[in-house]
Simulated scan of single mutants.
Amino acid sequence: MFLAYLFLAGLVFGSFFNAAGRRIPAKISLITPRSSCPVCRRKLTFLELIPVLSYLFLQGRCRGCKSPVSIVYPAVELSAAMLFVLAGLRFGCQGELVIALALISLLLIVFVSDVVYMVIPDAILCFFLPFFVIGRVLVPLEPWHSSLTGAIAGFLLPLFTVVVTRNGIGGGDVKLFAVIGFVLGSRLIFLVFFLSAAAGTVLGIAGILAGKVKRREPMPFAPAILIGTLASCFYGQQLIDRYIQFMLV
């Protein structure tokens, strides 16, 4: 029942993440106006706002003008549901679960924002930061200063990349890494950065081969950060241990 609740909560919150990721960068209220089709501007009914199921029932098209609906909507909703369940399995009913759920929420919102607008607004990071600070006061990392050193490392690592590659990564990404470093600590932030860079390379090559991305054309980095962060959050210590074992063989 606990995992079922997390799954349903993920679906509902996933719908909100879509709205937040699209509205906050455009400086539109999260409350009004009601959700509508971006093409014909028709207000969506309750049955058209059911996570995932509405997309499947309407075959990915607006009920009014029949224009295609972005696959990002159901993808984020379903991803939120699955990640909430994975967090429940990984951390159980303890304080770390709340922090993990908040981190998942942040990453999915900035994912939408970066994919749609190529920007990670400070407003999103500033909203979540107090929750993470309170969370790490109540559920501290070991050692106690790991959050602070993680935040510093999370800021300096991508900043060094910006200097070397001359704006190869956005300022929003740099600040996002700092927040992630505070949440996961100094031990895991290096793994987050490495996995994010690797995921970004793979996604970039895949985008070029699929004809979706042009060479030397900027692309959203938040999807890669999401992959690297969640892999480190859920399996970071196991990955580090296996790497150490591999190096010692």
Rank of each mutant, 00 (worst) to 15 (best):
P74Y: 02
L129I: 13
I50N: 02
A123V: 15
L107Q: 03
L47A: 12
L129K: 10
F182C: 00
V69W: 02
L148F: 15
I180K: 05
D122E: 15
L129Q: 06
F127V: 15
E96T: 06
V133A: 12
L184V: 15
G168C: 09
L106G: 06
G172D: 12
V137E: 09
D114Q: 11
G185E: 11
C65G: 08
E142R: 04
L159S: 12
L138G: 03
I152L: 15
F182I: 04
A178I: 03
E77L: 00
V183Q: 01
V119N: 11
N167A: 14
I104F: 09
L108W: 03
V98R: 09
V162R: 11
D173I: 03
A102N: 05
V85H: 04
L47W: 13
I109M: 10
L101T: 04
V174R: 08
V137F: 13
V163G: 02
R166M: 07
V115E: 01
L106N: 08
L97H: 06
L156M: 12
I180N: 08
K66C: 02
V183R: 05
E142S: 07
R90P: 08
F132V: 12
F91Q: 07
V163P: 01
G92P: 02
V116F: 04
A81Y: 00
V85K: 04
L184I: 09
C62V: 02
F132Y: 05
M118G: 07
A75N: 00
I189H: 13
F177W: 00
Y55G: 00
